[in-house]
Design a protein around this nucleic acid. Structure first.
Lengths: 133, 133
DNA sequence: GTAAGTACGTACCTGAAGGTAAGTATCCAT
DNA sequence: ATGGATACTTACCTTCAGGTACGTACTTAC
């Protein structure tokens, strides 16, 4: 019963820490990026942009429940991480287009894979939840 | 310049909404599950458990920065979603083991794919961030 | 002239995520 | 007998994601 033998190597060397599992370190910068990408609206923005370039209001209408403030903030996070490209046309009714960068396309695909899997397996999940509710 | 033609079909029929993109609906239950899985500690717990069964304290030590309270809560979320299996041995120093269910294994793999990609591409991301900082 | 659309910025507020600290009951090692 | 490990729970507090609402500057449509 005490055979649970799991690798619990403490930080060890720096190179070891770099090889894999820096995620588990308190100050790993990946965690910030992950937070932007997996934030409530970040997921939806990335998946939405997989369908192509969108204007601000297009995204707002497509993504049910976003406030303008949160959409703007999320887009700024993703832009500063290099995942989203913002193109602004200085015309008099403002016109701004958002699209995925090559880097953004790759994250978005992985985020979509996760989101799609959850959506597709919702029945199984809801059933599992019922058993202990 | 006004050729940005993006599919902006309003909710349409219910079956259409079911086929794909229920995620974009305000009240889609997938969003809750997604929140648990992509929560700050949810990601790390799932990836950690991919390495095998862990005890509570093992997880606490492995995942840098978690508080006991948050670890317990995250494990309960994931358990109620059917992703994590909790096995408790009624011995006198408490002994509890956490592992992934078959369902949990599948989400965890996709979460890991995302996390690994971000970790692997951190240099590119940080560089993109520098350009506009 | 008045309402609506465009892409936001800003101020204010709430609610929930998350942190800190302590308590619990029982053992084992020193 | 004192301290630490085990797996939590509870209470309290802080922080921030997120919501609501309003302002902007200009245009087109009614």
């Amino acid at each position: 019963m005490s055979e649970t033998d799991v690798s619990l190597i403490p930080p060890a060397t720096l190179s070891e820490q770099m090889r894999r599992g820096e995620l588990f370190a308190v100050d790993c910068p990946s965690r910030d990026v992950l937070q932007h990408v997996t934030s409530r609206w970040g997921v939806l923005v990335l998946v939405a942009l997989l369908a192509g370039t969108h204007r601000f209001s297009d995204l707002r209408r497509k993504i049910g429940g976003v406030s303008e403030k949160m959409l703007a903030q999320t887009l700024q996070w993703l832009e500063s991480d290099g995942f989203v490209l913002r193109k602004s046309y200085p015309v008099v009714p403002p016109h701004v287009e958002y699209s995925l960068t090559p880097l953004g396309l790759e994250v978005a695909r992985r985020v979509e894979a996760l989101a799609d899997w959850i959506e597709g397996n919702l029945p199984s999940i809801m059933e599992a939840r019922k058993l202990r509710s």
